Simulated scan of single mutants.
Amino acid sequence: MDKAALLIIDYTNDFVAPDGALTAGKPAQDIASTIVTLADQFLAKKQFIILPTDLHVANDPFHPETKLFSPHNLVDSRGRAFYGPLANWYAEHQDSPYVYAFAKNRYSAFANTNLDNFLRERQITDLHLTGVCTDICVLHTAVSAYNLNYPLTIHKKAVATFTPNGQEWALAHFKNSLGATII
Results as ranks from 00 to 15, higher is better:
Tyr83Asn: 08
Phe69Asn: 11
Leu68Lys: 14
Arg106Lys: 13
Val99Phe: 05
His56Cys: 04
Tyr98Met: 12
Arg78Pro: 00
Ser108His: 06
Leu119Asn: 11
Asp76Pro: 00
Arg120Pro: 11
Tyr100Ala: 02
Phe62Pro: 00
Pro85Trp: 00
Arg106Glu: 11
Ala101Glu: 15
Pro71Leu: 03
Phe69Tyr: 15
Ala87Thr: 01
His56Ser: 05
Gly79Val: 04
Tyr90Cys: 00
Ser108Asn: 08
Tyr90Lys: 01
Arg80Met: 05
Arg106Ala: 12
Pro71Glu: 04
His72Asn: 03
His63Tyr: 06
Trp89Ile: 06
Pro85Ser: 11
Gly84Arg: 07
Tyr107Asn: 12
Leu68Glu: 11
Phe118Pro: 07
Arg106Asp: 09
Asn112Gly: 09
Leu115Ile: 07
Ala91Asp: 13
Tyr98Lys: 08
Tyr100Cys: 06
Gln94Tyr: 09
Glu92Gln: 15
Ala91Pro: 00
Asp116Pro: 06
Phe69Glu: 06
Arg106His: 14
Leu68Thr: 08
Leu68Val: 09
Phe102Cys: 03
Tyr100Val: 05
Pro97Thr: 11
Tyr107Pro: 00
Asn59Gln: 11
Ala111Gln: 09
Thr66Lys: 07
Ala81Tyr: 00
Trp89Tyr: 07
Pro97Asn: 07
Asn114Val: 07
Leu74Ile: 15
Tyr98Asp: 10
Val75Lys: 07
Phe82Leu: 15
Phe62Met: 05
Tyr98Pro: 02
Gly84Phe: 08
Val75Gln: 04
Gly79Arg: 01
Asn117His: 14
Asn105Glu: 14
Phe110Ser: 04
Ala103His: 13
Trp89Leu: 05
Arg78Ile: 10
Asp116His: 15
Asn117Gly: 10
Ser108Pro: 02
Val57Pro: 00
Ser108Gln: 04
Leu86Arg: 01
Pro64Ala: 07
His56Arg: 14
Ala111Gly: 00
Tyr100Arg: 07
Ser96Asn: 14
Leu74Ala: 04
Ala103Thr: 10
Val57Tyr: 13
Leu68Asn: 08
Ser108Tyr: 07
Asn112Asp: 15
Gln94Val: 08
Asn105Pro: 00
Ala101Asp: 14
Phe118Tyr: 15
Asp76Trp: 02
Pro64Tyr: 13
Asp60Pro: 02
Tyr83Gly: 06
Arg120Asn: 14
Gly84Val: 02
Arg80Asp: 01
Asp60Thr: 09
Val57Thr: 15
Gly84Trp: 06
Leu74Pro: 07
Tyr100Gly: 02
Ala91Met: 09
Ala103Met: 03
Asn117Phe: 13
Asp76Lys: 14
His93Phe: 12
Thr66Asp: 02
Ser77Tyr: 06
Arg78Lys: 11
Pro97Arg: 06
Thr113Lys: 12
Arg120Val: 15
Arg78Asn: 04
Val57Phe: 12
Trp89Lys: 02
Asp60Tyr: 07
Ala91Thr: 12
Ser70Asp: 11
Asn59Gly: 11
Ser77Asn: 08
Ser77Pro: 12
Pro61Gln: 04
Phe110Thr: 07
Arg80Leu: 05
Tyr98Val: 04
Pro61Asp: 06
Pro71Lys: 03
Asn105Val: 12
Phe82Ala: 03
